[in-house]
Computed example of a mutant assay.
Amino acid sequence: MLFTQAKGRNVIALTTAESLATVTGIAIAPAPARIAAVRVKTRGPGTQVTWNDVHSFGPDAVTVRTPDTIQGDQDTTAPTDKHHDPIGKRLLTETGQNLGSLDDIDFDETTGHIKRLIMAGQDIPGERLLGAGTYAIAVAAP
């Protein structure tokens, strides 16, 4: 699944069947390359759902078991503020070569594993992800 297709989906609590939030971004982690958390917009104080708290990432909605799975930034080590969202960030190799900017992320909606990083004219296997920060996404040189 492409992240750009997932952005904007509702987050639904299975225990209450209510819409809790809307997906706005993601946080990624290397080794292994995966989605660490999903950034959300809520009416309340929560800002994120860690991947371990996602019950299902379906074609129409993201489900979580209970409303309390939506956490604040301080509740996890995954950086999910808007400055850490990888989409649009520059991609740099470990040797400092600028490859361009990240257009999308293809991930497995069951496991959160990143299959590939997508940029104009090139796909980079997820296994090459070394790190992600506010400035750039670092990948291993080919």
Results as ranks from 00 to 15, higher is better:
S19Q: 12
L20H: 03
L20M: 11
L20N: 06
T22H: 00
V23M: 04
V23H: 10
V23T: 07
T24E: 15
T24M: 07
G25Y: 10
A27L: 02
I28M: 14
I28Q: 13
I28Y: 15
P32W: 09
P32F: 12
P32I: 14
P32G: 14
A33H: 14
R34N: 09
A36K: 03
A37T: 04
A37D: 03
A37M: 01
R39Q: 14
V40I: 10
V40A: 08
V40T: 13
K41F: 11
K41E: 09
T42N: 10
T42I: 13
T42L: 10
T42F: 11
T42S: 12
R43G: 05
G44R: 11
G44D: 12
P45E: 15
P45R: 15
G46Y: 01
G46F: 06
T47Q: 14
Q48W: 02
Q48E: 07
Q48K: 03
V49I: 12
V49T: 04
V49Q: 01
V49Y: 04
T50C: 05
T50E: 08
N52K: 04
V54I: 15
F57S: 12
G58I: 05
P59N: 01
P59E: 00
P59T: 01
D60I: 07
D60A: 13
A61I: 06
V62Y: 01
T63A: 07
R65W: 15
R65D: 09
R65Y: 08
R65C: 03
T66G: 09
P67L: 07
D68E: 05
D68P: 01
D68M: 02
D68R: 06
T69V: 04
T69Y: 05
T69Q: 11
I70P: 01
I70V: 05
I70G: 01
Q71I: 07
Q71C: 03
Q71M: 05
G72M: 03
G72S: 03
D73K: 11
D73A: 13
D73N: 15
D75E: 12
T76I: 08
T77A: 02
T77W: 01
T77G: 05
T77L: 02
P79N: 09
P79W: 14
P79A: 10
T80S: 15
D81R: 07
D81S: 09
D81G: 08
D81Y: 06
K82Y: 12
K82P: 15
H83E: 09
D85V: 03
D85N: 12
D85M: 04
P86W: 09
I87Q: 04
I87W: 05
G88E: 13
G88D: 06
G88K: 10
K89S: 04
K89H: 11
